[in-house]
Design a protein around this nucleic acid. Structure first.
Lengths: 300, 300
DNA sequence: TAAAAATACTCCATAGGTATTTTAT
DNA sequence: ATAAAATACCTATGGAGTATTTTTA
């Protein structure tokens, strides 16, 4: 069996069926009729000499063999996508479209401050922005569903390349008039456990804040979003750590800076190490460094 | 432009043209007529929106864009090859064919001692054996021209995975009756520079021997093959270091073992880190460990 | 002028569509 | 009974072939 016999289209079909668990849905996604897709999958299985799916009219499961084969098909399609990316790269950076997502505690505060500057550097670029949690973002990145992400260092995954953009200090947000706000020497460690507000588990900011300044206390209260957290502070529930860019002009909240270099997180741009558009990402990182907003320290 | 529009066959055509620098030769390799290949390349260039080749009837050069695009096409084809490998893998280990090469100072002495054992474990496997220098072997491996290689540790390339098979001691080969052969305490370092024979530069064995036991001396004499080196020893030209498996029953040569764990090289099986047949390679490595011939120390 | 690539055209293999049947719950 | 996959059959796109022309060293 020869590689040239394979068609990328067929691989897309198989991957779609595996992902959606249904021929009809896969046919829909691939913009072909269900019978066409059926026969193509059949031919593919014949060519590969292996059953990919066990199907009855009611249930469709991927065979054990199919799992590893479809995993490999994904790799092929990812590389094929890279080829197309390289092509449009030739005409303009990132081929005119970049899917960029940031961690939720950064994106809403950061994107608005750099979008205009990015537009100036990449006038034709259509940015597709998003937010999420670190694991979801890196997962989507590795799957090829995203082109790049903005997350907090360190990035451990060997499949990812990254470039540091800036260091973002943590500020302490306290209810207006709270003692910790006026007495700067008090700081985070001087707070009672019940005064410490934190994000729910799973937010990378929580991990960063804990790593930088605190342990989890049994009495600590939690919130699921940074905005909610700030409202809780304004309501006098206690104090919390807030990344500098997320600090606003909320009525009822005072922000105090914390002394010490460790009270900060480093934001990096990350992309797939296998992505051939390396120089383009390096250029983007430099541009983002140049655009570093007030309140953070650009990473050289 | 959609990935499904691309055909692996077209990518093979483009890669063949780039490699052979000629449409006629590429058409020949791809078993199509020259006009067919011409129009397919033309369509591919149109689809990609980029010229791959600048061609006149006399000269054909790959455009700068074409270089990076074809590099990417190679990656796609490599992954596609992996898919096929995985398929035949399903029926039998390594899909019935394994291209395995070893460094020249190992292969001729090692292969004969393990082939029978391999045949027992992989009765259907058709082994394609070869020899070469480390750099050539790893290059061919990374290009996809080989499936696995047997080389000396360490393997630095991050694109390669490896598993240690055994430690092979170096023996000192001396002319029969030479003082070093009888006086074991003399050893390699006790030799005169002019008595030290080495392989020419470029042989990994030379590097290993030098790293293990010696520096290069200006007066040292060299040979291009291990066999020649042994003949030189038999002719009384001097002594040399010989890996244990290469030590034979040559008339006129005495072998003395050297004390010390550092007088040895470690042979590893290496394959592409991206090769999806990881377990199969691990199994092969274990089998080879079990088959370690006398004179070497199996790596657990 | 000779060798290589491009063009013109013809053919047919096959992907895809519609209509229908089979199958499992 | 119903929803999903498979089958039958037809159409048409486009890949491959042969013959020929164009181009340049």
């Amino acid at each position: 069996m020869n590689v040239s016999g394979l068609s990328l289209r067929d691989l897309e079909y198989a991957v779609a069926v595996a992902e959606l668990g249904s021929f009809v849905k896969a046919a829909e996604r691939c913009h072909v009729s269900q019978p066409s897709l059926s026969v193509q999958i059949g031919k593919l299985e014949a060519r590969l000499g292996a059953l990919l799916f066990e199907r009855t009219t009611r249930r469709l499961i991927v065979t054990p063999q199919g799992r590893v084969l479809i995993e490999q098909m994904r790799r092929i399609l990812l590389e094929a996508g890279n080829l197309l990316a390289l092509c449009s790269e030739a005409t303009q950076p990132f081929g005119g479209a970049l899917r960029l997502s940031a961690i939720a505690t950064l994106g809403p505060y950061y994107f608005p401050r750099v979008l205009q500057g990015l537009r100036a550097r990449y006038p034709e670029l259509s940015l597709v922005l998003g937010e999420g949690r670190t694991d979801d973002l890196t997962g989507a990145l590795l799957r090829g569903d995203l082109d790049a992400v903005l997350v907090a260092a360190p990035i451990e995954d060997p499949g990812l390349a990254s470039a540091a953009l800036f260091h973002e200090p943590f500020l302490m947000a306290c209810p207006k008039g709270h003692s910790a706000a006026s007495r700067k020497d008090l700081g985070w460690s001087g707070l009672q456990p019940r005064e410490r507000l934190l994000l729910e588990e799973g937010h990378c900011l929580r991990d960063q804040a804990i790593a930088a300044c605190a342990e989890v206390h049994p009495g600590a209260r939690h919130a699921t979003s940074l905005e909610t957290l700030k409202y809780m502070v304004a309501a006098g529930e206690g104090c919390t750590l807030v990344p500098a860019l997320a600090a606003g002009q909320e009525a009822g909240v005072d922000y105090a800076s914390l002394r010490g270099a460790e009270y900060r997180r480093t934001i990096v741009l990350a992309w797939r190490a296998s992505d051939p558009r390396n120089e383009a990402f390096a250029d983007l990182a430099q541009r983002l460094r140049d655009l570093s907003p007030d309140g953070v320290e650009s990473a050289s």
